[in-house]
């Protein structure tokens, strides 16, 4: 119970500080991947005319790639970045990469919603959301186990 309360607090912190003092605020987190998507769409959609719905095809892949890439890089850094907290509060170290993963998951859900509304011109249906959540939980677990194994090495590196 306490573990989840701590996890929630850390996740909330991650989400808030990421978007806080930037000009566009909360939306900024979604604009960055969207820009990437536009680049992909503009450059490659002319090339791959054989794929019937190129936009949908690209976005469904890229969104998950962003999720995974961000989660692994930030998760790895999170332990070192929060060494001060680890040294002075009684917290399980695994909380920090977990919280990074959770905040990325939050981001992913929003990206999915935007994608559905923008490109498919319909409201999110349950089936797609379920698939997304299963996929995200899968990649999340991978991240979790990687960090659990590397944890001790990270600590000695600090």
């Amino acid at each position: 119970m306490q573990f989840f309360r701590q996890l929630y607090a850390l996740t909330k912190r991650n989400v808030t500080i990421r978007y806080k003092h930037s000009l566009l605020g909360f939306i900024w987190g979604f604009i960055k991947p969207l820009l990437y998507l536009f680049i992909f769409i503009i450059i490659f959609s002319a090339q791959f005319t054989s794929i019937s719905n190129y936009v949908l095809y690209t976005t469904s892949g890229l969104i998950f790639w962003f999720f995974f890439a961000n989660m692994t890089s930030q998760g790895a850094y999170s332990i070192i970045a929060s060494s001060g907290i680890i040294k002075s509060l009684k917290l399980q170290t695994i909380l920090f990469p977990l919280a990074e993963g959770m905040s990325e998951l939050f981001n992913l859900c929003f990206m999915q919603l935007i994608r559905q509304v923008l490109y498919e011109n319909r409201h999110p249906d349950l089936q797609v959301l379920l698939t997304c959540s299963f996929l995200s939980i899968g990649s999340f677990m991978v991240g979790y186990f990687i960090f659990h194994r590397l944890k001790n090495q990270f600590i000695t590196a600090i």
Binding site: G84, K87, L89
Partner: peptide, 28 residues
């Protein structure tokens, strides 16, 4: 109640109230 380093876990970008909530939750 360990008070080992003052301000450990304080997040500089967040407001005082948010920090109070964060630190209380982190302390369980």
């Amino acid at each position: 109640a360990p008070i080992l380093a003052l301000g450990a876990g304080l997040e500089l970008e967040m407001t005082g109230y948010e920090n109070i909530r964060l630190l209380l939750s982190l302390n369980g």
